[in-house]
């Protein structure tokens, strides 16, 4: 029993520590954060780490408020990131529309959050999971259609998408199931084990994404043609008379 509690506590600590890993990678490769989507991603990572720090400092005293704020910012920032990643204008419009819809729902729902005791908002979490699962599948569909040159595992957006797809699809069933079982004894521990494992996997994959982003930027910097060569004036055929 004590061992189980110890394992759970270690897992919990690992979960929290893993939340800081992507931020650490972001800071390590800060100069390589060039594209808009990675900038938004950086904001999201920083924001997540900040909220977790607040929770740890206040010992989860205001956890329900923090979770509530986290959900809406997570939704907005991840939506913005996919707004920049996805090329389809229809999906972009849907994302913008969803941000406003979700924000409106959140404002309405925020008034009902119990500031004293913890009250997990299952519906918001489920909607968020479902929405991002759909958006990421759209992204995969787009990548399958248009990307024929760069292998997927070299794209940071691919690793970010795999991370969030695993996280949201993994937590979707949990959230749905938790609605009726959340207050049962011991349920939270099992919930914690699963969610911790998924979160750790997600954060490792996000670190891989940041690492690949660094490689991608490095590859872009390599120019095999010397810049001092004037190749534009080369006209191979214009002055020839015999072909």
């Amino acid at each position: 029993m004590i061992k189980l509690q110890l394992i759970l506590q270690i897992l919990e600590k690992l979960n929290y520590l893993s939340e800081f890993l992507p931020l650490l990678f972001c800071l390590l490769f800060f100069k390589k954060i060039n594209s808009k989507e990675i900038k938004v991603f950086f904001v999201y990572i920083t924001f997540s780490a900040l909220l977790l720090t607040i929770n740890l400092i206040t010992k989860f005293k205001y956890a329900n408020i923090v979770v509530s704020i986290t959900v809406v910012f997570e939704f907005v920032l991840l939506s913005m990131m996919y707004f920049y990643i996805i090329k389809s204008s229809l999906v972009k419009k849907l994302i913008i529309f969803s941000i406003f819809l979700f924000a409106a729902y959140w404002i309405y729902n925020f008034s009902k959050v119990n500031l004293q005791g913890f009250k997990f908002d299952f519906l918001t979490g489920a909607v968020e999971s479902l929405f991002f699962t759909a958006v990421i599948i759209c992204y995969f569909y787009e990548v399958m259609q248009y990307n024929f040159t760069i292998p997927l595992f070299k794209l940071p957006s691919f690793w970010v998408s795999v991370a969030f797809l695993i996280f949201f699809s993994g937590s979707f069933f949990l959230i749905l199931y938790s609605k009726t079982n959340f207050n049962k004894p011991g349920f939270r521990d099992q919930f914690l084990v699963i969610i911790s494992v998924i979160t750790i996997i997600k954060n490792i994959l996000l670190c891989i994404a940041l690492f690949e982003n660094k490689n991608l930027v490095l590859n872009k910097d390599i120019n095999p043609i010397p810049s001092n060569l004037n190749l534009d004036t080369f006209q191979p055929l214009n002055n020839q008379t015999n072909f």
Binding site: I166, S169, F173, L174, G186, D189, Q190, T199
Partner: peptide, 30 residues
């Protein structure tokens, strides 16, 4: 992001939740 803390309660493993999540993850990996 979901924040939860360890409680002192224990209960038998909830297989529905475990296999449900595993099924979702398998689908994702697929």
């Amino acid at each position: 992001m979901i924040f939860l803390q360890v409680t002192t309660n224990t209960s038998p493993i909830n297989y529905v939740m475990l296999f449900g999540t595993l099924a979702m993850l398998s689908l994702t990996l697929g």
